[in-house]
Amino acid sequence: MAYFIQQLINGLTLGAIYGLIAIGYTMVYGIIGMINFAHGEIYMIGAFLAIISYLVFGDMGIVSIPILLMGMLVISMIFTAAYGWTVERLAYRPLRGSFRLAPLISAIGMSIALQNYVQISQGARVKPIQPVVQGGFQLFTQGGFAVQITYLQIVIWVLTTALMVGFTYLITQTSLGRQQRACEQDRKMASLIGVNVDRTISLTFVLGAALAAVAGLITTLYYGVIDFYVGFLAGMKAFTAAVLGGIGSLPGAMLGGLMIGLIEAFWSAYFTIEYKDVATFGILVLVLIFKPTGFLGKPEVEKV
């Protein structure tokens, strides 16, 4: 039981990471109907920015942990958002209304390019850092097994929840959110009533990238080590999460993220760890075949 609860705690933390990335997939899919294959790399860039900003702040002699964390958060969100914007501008915007496979191929090219850009500029070796937030407390002990929640896990949950609340507010209550939903419904109509479609799509990428940056920051803090390749698998799993929750649905992305996090944690705990990625992937295939709309997605009516 104690072991189970510990895995639940770990799974929820992992789920927060996947959920934050999944939102980027789901939002972009909602607004332009494409899978942004490069989103996993955007997350990877966020993780690198967290490490780099951590090192820069260290050189500047900042030791206060809250300031350090806030600084890392802000820096990685801003720079990653700039990357998100640029990717859309360079690789996707010129292809709107182009041949069906073109944006997908462009996205794959972008993903390969970004991965190698970081590998070349930062080196292929793994990047370890010292734990920034240490310690935690014991919930209870059962049969010699102590169930622990670390302070970092609490920080992660608080941060994710706060972002989700803020984000939901942004989408449901503000003019930006309305414009975005308008573009989702009908891009042409939205532009006719004065919505700046290009700007709205750009902002979608910026927001998605900023959230992915937070996921990258969390990964850096939680695991303490990253490399240029982390975006590939995490991107895959976050995409699975988005599909599981119902692609196009924001709460669905978060729900799917948590489910994938839990599944992965429990699979590693009770089954073979080697096949945990295969397990996630099996879920994606099963969901796509039997329930392509996911849990919270709207049914898609084929336009004939």
Binding site: A91, P94, I108, G109, I112, A113
Partner: peptide, 10 residues
């Protein structure tokens, strides 16, 4: 390769 794929698609 990656950059060329993007460029050719555009």
């Amino acid at each position: 390769f990656g950059a060329a794929m993007v460029a050719v698609m555009v």
